[in-house]
Amino acid sequence: MKAWWPLIPLLALLAFSPVASAGGVDPTDFDEPGLEERYRALLHELRCTVCQNQSLADSDAGLARDLRRELRTQLNAGSSDDQIIDYMVSRYGQFVLYRPPFSPATYLLWIGPFVLLGLGFVVLYLTSRGSRQGARTTGVDSAARERARRLLGEGKDV
């Protein structure tokens, strides 16, 4: 019994720690087995609006817990996936979706990276073209070169 005595406080801390109690498992209380599959799919389709690019399944923020609870409530109430997504978008905006639809509000999101990539290529082309032209011409005319030779030559005699 003496060998176990130092381990009792450690076991008590482990038993009552938040990691042990939460276990990383999101409790689901669905009556139908198909609802849990829909729940898991929607968790990965919706984004936590507080976290930086994390799905509701990955986030541990308070808002994400509330959204997961709301998702369970709506699934148990019989809402369809489209109704749930529409509700979340109406409440939190397009940012809550990982794959927002192609609409006027999201044109910049979908097309912006390609426009920036094209602009980058144009800038790269223009700067490389300019440096090639600068290598061919020194930018110093022959009269200035002759004047420099005379000045340097006169400085050596002194």
Rank of each mutant, 00 (worst) to 15 (best):
P33A: 06
F95H: 10
D66V: 15
G23M: 04
A41F: 15
A61V: 07
G134I: 07
Y98F: 15
L7P: 01
L109N: 12
E154H: 10
W4E: 09
P104W: 05
L109T: 14
A61T: 12
T137E: 06
A105C: 01
G24C: 01
L14E: 00
E45K: 14
R129V: 13
R132G: 08
E32Y: 14
R47P: 00
G155Q: 11
Y125V: 07
L151F: 14
G155K: 13
D29C: 09
D157V: 10
V140G: 03
L56N: 00
A22K: 13
L42C: 03
G139P: 03
D81E: 13
D82Y: 12
T49H: 00
T127M: 15
Q52C: 01
R150E: 12
D82C: 10
A143R: 09
Q83F: 11
L14A: 11
L67K: 00
E32H: 15
Q52R: 08
L63M: 06
R147N: 12
A144N: 08
W5P: 00
G23R: 02
G118L: 06
L11K: 10
L109G: 14
S17L: 03
E146W: 08
L35A: 11
D157F: 07
P104V: 07
A105N: 11
R69H: 15
R68Y: 02
E70A: 05
T138W: 09
R47C: 09
L97M: 09
Q52G: 02
F95S: 09
R145M: 10
Q54F: 06
L97W: 06
I84A: 00
L152G: 14
A105D: 07
K2Q: 15
D157C: 13
S55A: 06
G62H: 08
D26Y: 13
L71F: 02
R145Q: 08
P101L: 08
S17V: 14
E32W: 11
C51N: 01
S79E: 14
D60M: 13
D141N: 07
R69A: 15
K156P: 01
T138L: 08
L75Y: 07
Y125Q: 08
C48F: 00
D157T: 13
V25F: 12
D157M: 12
G62P: 07
A22D: 15
A77S: 04
L7C: 05
L10F: 05
P113R: 06
P6H: 12
K2A: 15
R149D: 01
G118V: 06
L13T: 09
F95G: 09
D86P: 00
L124N: 07
A143Y: 05
A12S: 08
S90F: 02
G34D: 11
N76E: 14
L63F: 02
S21R: 15
L97C: 00
I84W: 01
A3V: 10
R91K: 06
Y98H: 13
